[in-house]
Design a protein around this nucleic acid. Sequence first.
DNA 1: TATTTAAGTGACACTAGTGTCACTTTGAAT
DNA 2: ATTCAAAGTGACACTAGTGTCACTTAAATA
Lengths: 191, 191
Amino acid sequence: MARERKFTDEHLFQETKELIIHDGYEAFTFSKLASRLKVSRGSIYKYYENKDELISEFLMYEMARFLSDFGKLNKTADFPTQFNELIDFIFTQSNIYGVLEIIGQIPAPTTKRALNNKSKISEYYISMYQQFEGFIELGRKEGVIKEHLPTAILLGMIFQIIAIPNHFNIPEKEWIGSIKEILSSGMFKHD
Amino acid sequence: MARERKFTDEHLFQETKELIIHDGYEAFTFSKLASRLKVSRGSIYKYYENKDELISEFLMYEMARFLSDFGKLNKTADFPTQFNELIDFIFTQSNIYGVLEIIGQIPAPTTKRALNNKSKISEYYISMYQQFEGFIELGRKEGVIKEHLPTAILLGMIFQIIAIPNHFNIPEKEWIGSIKEILSSGMFKHD
DNA sequence: TATTTAAGTGACACTAGTGTCACTTTGAAT
DNA sequence: ATTCAAAGTGACACTAGTGTCACTTAAATA
């Protein structure tokens, strides 16, 4: 019907992600994004009215992808096995935390689309929380988790362990292994 | 000799901290700071040539303060006692992590003063690292810490535990208590 | 091949930040 | 009281981002 697109949504989201993770929400500009996509700034306005709309669309995309990948994890294995897989998974998603941080920074939506996106993002966020919650419940049912630690704390620690940047450049295997050991001997019952 | 200052360095650093923690490095402007200090933008330029100089000065101030407070902690008690005090201390300094994050964002210094500040900040950073390292060594000497966990990992986890924001608004006592329990039963030897 | 239509452009008017500087204010010292 | 130097101001010229829009380009289809 018309001419070819010079950039895909995926490409735009990828560049947006890098810009936001590197510089933060406030420093994100259409100019920087346009130059990375090698198009004029004006062409981006064909798809997004403003920064908030673009970023809320990006966040929706990222969270949907995260939830979809998370859903593919083995849900039938026993808790210790799933725990292992979950920590591994979280480390393949190490930038999801940067994405979650941005959610708090979205200002009051300026367009209907940004408003819809914002409520969709909240839904995804709740869904993400509930899936992690279900995971902790499994650990309790199997009698693996120390009873007196409240779910919200365990959840908080697992959920946010991804926020810990590996400043000291410790090899990934060792880093993940030690986190698994510290978390599991900290959270699980031992005999 | 001359007229009274309308703002102190401490006041300026306090407002700078709030602005940077809230909006990030890139979004910090002299205009915002001036309006918080209730002075004209021009007057800030009397003391700092530009943003980098101001922020590097602020970081120096913050790290010096952190190191000084850290130095006041009891260094004679046994390791488990010091561990307790350290975690408590870290939580009173919950925004130090935001400050450390900014260090990585300082661009190439544009003035001699900014350059000097940058190298002073590196010194402080190293000193901070070494003090934490000495703390871990104490734990090893006392035979409290699991031998096979490398110092750098333990250090990394303690040093960066402050980065974990309490998203779920769990009461502080419970939050800190659980972190202490998970960390200590994860890192310490049990019999 | 001509037509259609979405994709893309770049110039325009606007807003907000930067760094500078001649000028005014003010309080301490003579 | 006068002096004077540091503190503070606000206007100026500049840079960089925003959002818009009439216009051009190019791929699909009739």
